[in-house]
Amino acid sequence: MNAPVLEILHYTKSYDGKRNAVNDLTLTVREGDICGFIGQNGAGKTTTLRACAGVLDFKEGDIRIGGRSVRKEPIPCKQMTAYIPDNPDLYDFLTGVQYLNFVADIYGVEKQARADRIARYAGMFRIEGDLASLIGAYSHGMKQKLALTAALLHEPKLLLLDEPFVGLDPEAAFRVKEVFRELCSRGAAIFFSTHVLDVAEKLCNRIAIIKNGTLVAEGNTDEVRGDESLEQVFLEVLGSEG
């Protein structure tokens, strides 16, 4: 069995002190895993992803990345991670290449490596012709592609993505899936939320379903799905009590 990259241990989060947005969630994502995190709106997916990225504080439970606690050692954990929120509001006042340089500087990526990766990923997503333009002039899809390029610059061990396929054109979505598979073949892990169940079913080797803040199903895609489609399983889970 591969080593765990992301371990979520009894994670509980409440915003108002009364109702738990996420309740006692325990989940492990290992090297090579592409784990799809699915659930209805407001189920707790973004709250979980934000906590994993170290941008949301929490009191109960722990989250470990590469064996280190996000709460106790946030900076080494963040160094191994890349996080893309659902609506990537990038810095509108920077040009694309300035933004990529900025991210590469923060993660300490060597000059040659960043030049190679920018050329590779920007070329792959077909945004190299726009990188000298201000991000403020980008469309939603272009911002999403730029955010993905930036996320891949330091070759993260763990990629956390909130709805990564929203706004991408079919070609870019295909490229993203290719990149995901390539990263995982090199030992990285990917944990992403999605509402596109077809993508989750075909791309992910692991699935986690969250309902009202509680993990209701988790395991290998084939185990979770059984003889049914993922859509049927998801609808059954939503329809059940609890």
């Binding site: 300035q98 990529l100 340089n101 060597e110 030049a115 190299e128 012709g129 000298a132 333009s133 002039a137």
Partner: peptide
């Protein structure tokens, strides 16, 4: 919107 612009290699600095 401003015109599109491709980046140059010298713009990548560390």
């Amino acid at each position: 919107r401003a015109a599109r612009g491709a980046y140059k290699a010298k713009q990548i600095k560390r």
